[in-house]
Design a protein around this nucleic acid. Structure first.
Lengths: 143, 143
DNA sequence: CTTGACCTTCCCATGGTGGGAAGCCTTACA
DNA sequence: TGTAAGGCTTCCCACCATGGGAAGGTCAAG
């Protein structure tokens, strides 16, 4: 199985497969006489593992640890759970952060006319002219 | 006002101020005889604008557009609102994506014993041995 | 034998940010 | 006056993952 087939079978691009090898995430595969990489079912399985971990938002670093745990038959599931819960917390922190942004932006957008006139509380907020004053230099020439 | 003071006054690091200048986000400031950058209140205002936009998750590209709109006294607030709502949608899409990850992970973590034994549905899922079997440890562990 | 589809390595780009080196300038203090 | 500290300048490198593409080797089918 060449790298192209392995990519197709795993859903990981050939580019990334080479990269994962380069950074030591996966072992260098065998090579044919023409220097082509050759992969087997096991390697594809590993690649799919990586792909799935990435799709759940684990970093490559975390993925590497998970991969080692997966291959370590005497692991404790607690170690895996630790990584997962840490990652969940991280995700939830980022979600909350973004939700804060959304909330603020929705507020601002709600107050913005969205018309042909220049008056815009969104820009006022960005500029630091918070609602209190409300009077940036505008309304000089408006409709 | 040197770059250090401008950084302090705006909350944007000196490093970033130079970078923003390099990519054309802000205009090159005047220089003193010793080649030091000199900033005034206006520039600091611009930097604070950028800082605020970044803190709301706008990309530098979006920030550049917003900055131009801010400085265009004849803008229409609709243009600003468009950018904001697009950004809100983008944020909400990413939030939903991460929430999906969290949901899956919580499920898996909930089913994981988190003990000294190796059986771990999280790894099973990553490995693709998911639902079909489902018989990891079905046995009761003090979950 | 040619054509096209692979494979190889190598370099570059992205988005934002930080780190740090080498060298100049200014200020303060002994 | 000498020196030390700290600020400024430019320049290069690093991160995290991923993609793009060039230059060249190789293989299979027509």
């Amino acid at each position: 199985m060449n790298i192209g087939q392995a990519a197709e079978a795993s859903g990981v691009s050939a580019k990334m497969i080479r990269y994962y090898e380069e950074i030591g995430l996966i072992a260098p595969p065998a090579r044919t006489g023409n220097n082509y990489r050759v992969y087997g079912g096991d390697q594809v399985h590993v690649l799919r593992f990586i792909k799935r971990a990435r799709s759940l938002g684990f970093s490559l670093e975390e993925t590497e640890v998970l991969l080692k745990l997966w291959q370590d038959k005497s692991r404790s599931s607690a170690a895996v759970k630790d990584i997962a819960t840490t990652h969940i917390n991280d995700l939830e922190r980022r979600i909350a952060e973004m939700q804060g942004m959304v909330k603020t932006l929705k507020n601002l957008a709600h107050c913005c006319g969205g018309d042909h006139r220049p008056d815009c509380p969104i820009l006022d907020d960005l500029a630091g002219d918070t609602a209190a004053s409300g009077n940036h230099d505008t309304h000089d020439h408006h409709a």
